[in-house]
């Protein structure tokens, strides 16, 4: 139990997928203009990332390794991720049309979120057992959601702040993101 908690803490805060590993920056900058869309995007990504971690582990251990086809790993992982994303899109469209409108193009673009491919590859590289891989994926996605939410809150305030003309919009966003990354460096050594 302690091990799992440490794993979660490590993936959410210490090795945060966005601010420490610098994966998944596109939705981080793209969807962080409003907190409510940020939360929804985070939840969709969490679902996809957890499912992708679990199914990639299963494919890796039950298909690729026994048949000696590990050289096809990236191909198979991308296939799985694409299927999970498509499925998520259908579910969101069915259950929450408003959210579907808001997320728009970013929902299918979860497929190209490098964090979604990166996390299963990392867990494979570290040879984690199934539950650990699942938690690794879930924790990373939770960290992604957390940072997305924090950053969206910051940007909502930035929109009202007086920013020097040259920095309005994306530039001040990038500066804020780097400061947030610096702040997250403070978690190093926590685990």
């Amino acid at each position: 139990m302690r091990e799992y908690l440490m794993l979660l803490l490590s993936t959410v805060l210490v090795n945060n997928v966005v601010l420490v590993k610098f994966l998944g920056l596109c939705p981080f900058m793209g969807i962080s203009k409003k907190t409510d869309t940020a939360v929804s995007m985070g939840l969709a990504t969490t679902f996809v990332m957890t499912m992708a971690s679990a199914s990639c582990w299963m494919l890796e251990h039950w298909l690729l390794m026994p048949l000696g086809m590990v050289y096809l790993r990236i191909l198979v992982y991308i296939l799985v991720i694409a299927v999970v994303v498509q499925f998520t899109e259908m579910v969101v469209r069915k259950t929450n049309p408003a959210l579907y409108q808001v997320l728009g193009i970013y929902l299918p673009l979860i497929t190209t979120n490098c964090a979604v491919l990166g996390i299963p590859l990392l867990t494979t590289q570290e040879k984690l057992p199934f539950v650990n891989s699942l938690l690794y994926g879930f924790g990373s996605a939770a960290g992604f959601t957390l940072v997305l939410l924090l950053f969206a809150g910051l940007r909502e305030r930035l929109a009202l702040a007086q920013v020097p003309g040259a920095f309005i919009g994306a530039p001040i966003g990038f500066i804020t993101a780097s400061l947030l990354a610096l702040a997250f460096m403070g978690f190093a050594g926590l685990v």
Partner: peptide, 22 residues
Amino acid sequence: SLTILGSAMGLFLGYAARRLEV
């Protein structure tokens, strides 16, 4: 195996698209 995997996932998505049609 990749053919089987791809077809299985395609069938799954096709079925899901029917079930979750809007």
